[in-house]
Amino acid sequence: MNKDGLFYFSKSHEWIGKDSNSNKYRIGISDFAQSELGDVVYVFLPESGKTYRKDEKIGEIESVKSVSEIYSPADIKIISINSNLNDTPELINHDPFGAGYIAEVEPLNPADLNILMDDNSYRIFIVSHHE
């Protein structure tokens, strides 16, 4: 996982964090989430330009095991989507925090991110909920 702790995690295993290159916020699903899902075969992406409330459904991920919903980790506006996922959804498996991000977003209220979990608390959360 990201070493500089810039990633914030939701209980439904999405992350939101600042990309060090572009200095913009991105969202995605966690490494734990992708390993639980198994091989991803299709991603239903959110709509560019649309705003979503925290915990609102923004998309779907279909893996060989099942279809799971993606929830917004915070109140966000979608700036652009990662359209590479349309052809290569496996990016989510290979690089969930990098090339496998879901979308570039603008948090409507950046201060709200503090109520999410940081790396460490998320790790503890996984262990205590999914031993």
Binding site: D39, V41, Y42, E62, V64, P89, E90
Partner: peptide
């Protein structure tokens, strides 16, 4: 047919 490549079969 042995183990099917499920990813390919889906994609």
């Amino acid at each position: 047919i042995g183990r099917v490549n499920e990813v390919l079969a889906n994609k």
